[in-house]
């Protein structure tokens, strides 16, 4: 990364993220061209996704707004293209631009939510295991071992297939994103749990924690105010990189047909559908979602990579 040559000064030992590193991170950010470009692009993607209902000419999830007589229109700059379908329409008469904006929204929401959920599961498990040790630690870490004995993609496929199967018909569409969030976070929490547990064990044996315990400060308090903040830095880096992974996993599941349903397509669903039109001449149905998905994951990963370099000087 370009950032690693420009950042001055030796690394301080890991301490509170905000205070010690705040200015440092900012300095590094303003001196990394790629990080700034990536952040700008990501901001644009997120903003357009958040405000999709205001920007998009059509609500692609509202079946009543889709006119199939307008199906498979090419982009406006091509012959046969029509306003307001800037990027053309798919086979349902769905405006591609609207579908992509809404699809990006789904991808981002699922990515964020599954990272948040896996953070919650993983950090809780890690803190509890590291702090209390003994039987609890053993059980939690064995569960982690079992999870790690299966590749993430396999766990995600299994969980989403089975959970969806258990939902009653009328919840299939509504519950699809929740199922994906669950599937992805269940495949990704162990990494956090292990990191946090290792860090917790280190902190647990430090004098200030021992002192707090002697003073009968409740365990919850020690965990929340003293130990947790010290585990945040490595977890934050991992979470950023996993955000990109989560988006990719969601797209992959949807591409394989076990993710978001066609009625509320994510980028992966759009690519799966568009893939069937690869040779039919309707290239816009597949190309635009592909570009958007790649762009999204690339900028997220550039930022994650940059963050790791900044916060984890050993890797530079």
């Amino acid at each position: 990364m370009t950032s690693d040559t420009s950042k001055p000064g030796a690394a301080q030992p890991t301490t509170m993220l905000q205070r010690a590193r705040g200015s440092d991170v900012w300095w590094s950010f303003t001196h990394s061209k790629s990080a700034m470009i990536a952040a700008t692009v990501l901001a644009v993607l997120i903003l357009t996704a958040v405000f999709a209902p205001l920007i998009a000419p059509q609500n692609p999830y509202d079946a009543a707004q889709l006119d199939m007589w307008k199906a498979e229109l090419p982009p406006v700059w091509q012959e046969g293209g029509e306003w307001p379908y800037l990027l053309g329409t798919d086979t349902q008469g769905r405006d591609m631009l609207s579908a992509i904006l809404y699809g990006t929204r789904i991808s981002i929401v699922i990515g964020l939510a599954s990272v948040a959920l896996s953070l919650l599961i993983g950090m809780t498990a890690g803190l509890v295991a590291g702090f209390f040790g003994g039987m609890i630690e053993n059980v939690l870490m064995r569960i982690g071992d079992i999870t790690l004995s299966m590749p993430t993609i396999l766990i995600a496929i299994l969980v989403s297939t089975v959970v969806r199967q258990l939902l009653p018909s009328e919840l299939r569409e509504i519950g699809a994103s929740a199922v994906l969030i669950l599937a992805i976070s269940l495949s990704a929490w162990v990494q956090y749990a292990r990191t946090v547990r290792a860090q917790t064990i280190v902190e647990r044996n430090k004098e200030y924690v021992q002192a707090a315990r002697l003073l009968k400060v409740p365990a919850r308090r020690i965990l929340a105010y003293h130990i947790l903040p010290n585990t945040l830095t490595p977890v934050l880096v991992a979470a950023t990189l996993n955000f990109g992974m989560a988006i990719l996993t969601e797209a992959t599941l949807s591409f394989l047909g076990i993710g978001m349903p066609p009625g509320q397509p994510s980028l992966g669903t759009l690519i799966r559908i568009g893939n069937q039109f690869l040779f039919s001449g309707s290239w816009w149905i597949v190309l635009f979602p592909v570009i958007q998905l790649c762009l999204l994951v690339v900028v997220v990963n550039i930022l994650g990579d940059w963050l790791r370099d900044v916060l984890n000087p050993k890797l530079r």
Binding site: G244, L248, A251, F255, G268, L278, C294, V297, V298
Partner: peptide
């Protein structure tokens, strides 16, 4: 970075 970001199904297609 682009390499780790491209979904493998997109690469295949």
């Amino acid at each position: 970075i682009i390499g780790v970001s491209l979904p493998s199904f997109v690469v295949g297609i």
